[in-house]
């Protein structure tokens, strides 16, 4: 089974977010980058499936050279090889076209990724790729198992419940917890990752359709009003009469 896992390189969840250049670009200064946590659920599940059924896991990143430490980390966790499409990921549509171009050359049985990235929160790329390739997509899935060699069984979250879906390979799925328990690379993994193939390819010509023109941050809160624990019930009347939310 050939599995493609798409990962993005994102600011660590604890990062403070700032912008530079008249709020036109994200300030990478002092920010640690990690594999997008949602993508890690997809990556570890892919590795688990490979360990159980055989096959290969290829990691794909559409990004610039500064993503390579985290691509190596994915190899250290257990992916077999990696591809980096050398491009600034302009928008979801652009990224989806790059993934689609790689997928068309390689006949993957499944294409997995996180349900969204924690930086741009699009929830778009997986469904765009599925549509471009004309194959089914199951998003967001929190369970993925093989029924037989050609069919997978997934559970996906819907508002207020879940759905069980069986699809024939190939398909696209996006992951969320608790699809798998992300792994920390061990020393042996880190050593072998150094020699695993990481291929850098040029981007295909593709258009972006959303132009990020500026950024802003949420307004600061006006300060907290403290209520004495002895008179906790007073909170309820403040919420009704002052905040007017009850």
């Amino acid at each position: 089974m050939k599995i493609l896992v798409c990962i993005s390189n994102v600011p660590d969840t604890t990062s403070k977010i700032n912008f530079t250049g008249d709020n036109k670009s994200f300030d990478k200064n002092g920010v640690q980058f990690v594999i997008n946590p949602w993508d890690e659920y997809a990556l570890t599940r892919a590795i688990e499936l490979k360990e159980a059924k055989g096959g290969t896991v290829t990691v794909l990143n559409v990004g610039e050279a500064d993503a390579e430490p985290n691509i190596r980390k994915a190899l250290a966790i257990g992916a077999d090889d990696a591809i980096r499409v050398n491009a600034h990921p302009k928008d979801a549509y652009f990224v989806a076209q790059q993934i689609t171009a790689i997928a068309k050359q390689n006949n993957y049985d499944m294409i997995l990724m996180g349900k969204e990235s924690i930086d741009y929160n699009g929830f778009q790329v997986h469904n765009m790729v599925a549509e471009m390739l004309g194959i089914p997509s199951v998003t967001p899935a929190f369970k993925l198992d093989m029924v037989d060699d050609s069919t997978a069984r997934l559970e996906r979250e819907i508002e207020g419940g879940k759905e069980v879906v069986e699809v024939k390979l190939p398909f696209v799925a996006s992951a969320q917890q608790p699809m798998s328990e992300p792994r920390i690379p061990n020393m042996r993994g880190i050593m072998t990752a150094r020699t695993k193939p990481l291929q850098v390819v040029d981007a295909v010509s593709a258009e972006a359709k959303a132009d990020y023109v500026g950024y802003s941050k949420p307004e600061k809160k006006g300060g907290v009003k403290m209520i004495d624990a002895e008179n906790a019930g007073e909170l309820i009347s403040l919420l009704r009469n002052e905040a007017k939310v009850l």
């Binding site: 929160n121 950024y215 949420p218």
Partner: peptide, 16 residues
């Protein structure tokens, strides 16, 4: 305007 960085910021996006 759309929410980005998981609620930590907003982005203005031109739909072209």
């Amino acid at each position: 305007t759309r929410g980005v960085f998981s609620g930590k910021a907003f982005a203005d996006v031109a739909l072209t």
